[in-house]
Design a protein around this nucleic acid. Structure first.
Lengths: 350, 350
DNA sequence: CTGTTAGCGCGTTCAT
DNA sequence: ATGAACGCGCTAACAG
């Protein structure tokens, strides 16, 4: 029913193989026949059959991108950047290098993560990029590691972006621990002594690393006695930040600063503080993490740790396509930069 | 090299056809052999070859989702919702109904939109969901319409979400015009007479419809004399809102309200007003559109028009899979709801 | 440079 | 209920 290679070949009075060669452009073809073929393609409005092509060539032009939540700009920025690298390579005239990025939103569920991985394996994806924090439950972690190895074994390149290294995969790790430490050190330097922390969901690598960095800074200042009591876990969203702040205030109404595990949580922290009549930063300083676009515009502008998400996504995309050499040891660390803005200031006196 | 159907068949001592039938589950197979086959599948860690399957069955389990910018939560929310509908249908035990959503970020470029459409056509996608505003240049619009017809003709279901109807496609249109009109009417009712408007990029349907709604409200109040002069176009982003506001202030420093074409622009509007020493809303009222998650949390909370993006995405996904009956005439209108919040108030006296 | 040949792995008749 | 055989549309040898 649809137009096939054979139809084009017939119309151009050449063999199917020749048409195939013209289209993939990776083989010498006489200019005259080439033109004839292209004209036939045009006239017949022929479009290659992807599945057939993938089957015969044993390669697919699909690249999977797994994210926890595509509605969260953190992942949107990374995913968009990865996809922007999927076009045809610079010097390739043919429609050869066009890859299609498949963005999959797992909702943070390890089961769905594995399901998507299987789906991509079924599609024989050329590469897979796993972004964001990984679940730390031993069984899930093992299952993902196994799946990754299997994908790698079957020729799918696997890139990890913002999650801890794994065998058989190239990794772009975010320095969550270091960034978090510098952020809390900044507060300590300002003079804060009673600092609350709103963490993300437990059992996630990013949550743990950021919390560890925070604790390290506290320990360095001899302030870690209360750390456990002044930490509340929640999701990486605004309502969690709001609720956690109320809880923190209940536990210690004399807090002079609250650090949130990310910027979105920080938004909720600010809202709760305002509802409780605390001024930011005069009464309570607030800090986030990630430096999402809205953070610089918040009122007051949010002190946070800038992660180069776009750049990381670009790099992840290039690594996935093998257009960039792997970092030594297969692991590169992406540093975060402290952005000290208006939401943090020395604590009120008295 | 990889495990194939034949390998599984050999191990289970049945024919490849039987294995195929067990896996697709749409054919009677004896329980005993069924169990044997499934065990073999498990032991061999067999994963169906998607391309081969798609070729033989002439159907694909890919669904394309085109968005202007996946880093923008507006699209992230829609895309995430569409994808959440792609799982196996409720009563289907087999791995049959699993669809893979391919989210493609076009950057608002009509060329890339067409390229993605071709890529999806090449993959023989089961469906395509086009979201967000469409370019209005006649040639581009025609090219997209043609491509859509061609996709539809080849059996790909096409769903339009948040863009104007097209032949051969089911449409979920947003009532941008009506929402914008009610929003500006709200300002007029509050007493505003000099209202600036920061529009999105020209030549886009959403931009035009929202602007038309705004103008209609002005005209209804006899305020449309200055409308042209008090409108500035930009992109749908924060910097554009910032710059446009400075320009508007230059054109009329006595503005008492500024309406932005979306919430993100409104963020920039607020920043610029503050930098110019204007209080919001005491000196100048500000309004946005979309009601993205951050808008309720802004300080002051943003008056805007709520679009049920998540619900619309869910519906678009169901329509794409044919799981929901088409609306009468193939077009359904999604209304926006005015959310009057703290960023709008009566104009200052004098 | 071009045509011929032979699969790629699976779904689907048609028999049995 | 199961197996044998064919073909989906394309690419990759191999000739020439």
């Amino acid at each position: 029913m649809a137009v096939t290679l054979a139809d084009v070949a017939a119309r151009a009075r050449v063999s199917a193989a020749t048409v195939s060669r013209v289209l993939s452009g990776n083989y010498p073809v006489a200019e005259s026949t080439r033109a004839r073929v292209l004209r036939a393609v045009d006239e017949l409005e022929y479009v290659v059959n992807g599945p057939a092509s993938a089957l015969a060539a044993a390669t697919s032009d699909l690249v999977g991108v797994l994210v926890n939540d595509i509605a969260d700009p953190f992942f949107g920025i990374i995913a968009g950047a990865v996809q922007s690298e999927m076009g045809a390579p610079i010097g390739a005239p043919g429609r050869g290098g066009e890859k299609l990025a498949v963005i999959c939103s797992t909702g943070g569920s390890p089961e769905r993560e594995l399901r998507y991985l299987t789906l991509l394996q079924r599609q024989r994806a050329a590469a897979v990029v796993l972004t964001g924090s990984a679940a730390e439950q031993p069984d899930h972690a093992a299952a993902v590691a196994t799946k990754v190895s299997r994908l790698a074994a079957s020729g799918t390149r696997v890139v990890l972006c913002g999650r801890p290294p794994l065998e058989d995969a190239v990794t772009l790790a975010f320095d969550n621990r270091g960034g978090a430490r510098r952020l809390t050190e900044h507060l300590v330097t300002l003079g804060h002594r009673r600092i609350g922390y709103v963490a993300g969901p437990a059992e996630r690598t990013t949550t743990r690393h950021r919390l560890e960095g925070h604790r390290a800074a506290l320990a360095g200042a001899g302030l870690d006695g209360d750390a456990e009591r002044l930490t509340v876990h929640g999701l990486y969203d605004r309502p969690s930040g709001y609720d956690a702040t109320l809880e923190l205030l209940r536990r210690d109404s004399g807090l002079t600063a609250i650090v949130a595990a990310n910027d979105t949580i920080a938004l909720g922290v600010c809202a709760a503080l305002r509802d409780r009549g605390r001024r930011i930063p005069e009464d309570v300083s607030v800090a986030g993490f990630d430096d999402l676009p809205f953070s610089a515009d918040a009122v007051p502008s949010l002190t946070t740790v800038r992660l180069p998400l776009h750049e990381a996504g670009i790099r992840a995309g290039r690594l996935a396509l093998g257009r960039e050499p792997q970092p030594p040891g297969g692991v590169a660390m992406v540093r975060g930069e402290l952005m000290a803005r208006s939401s943090t200031t020395p604590p009120p006196r008295g």
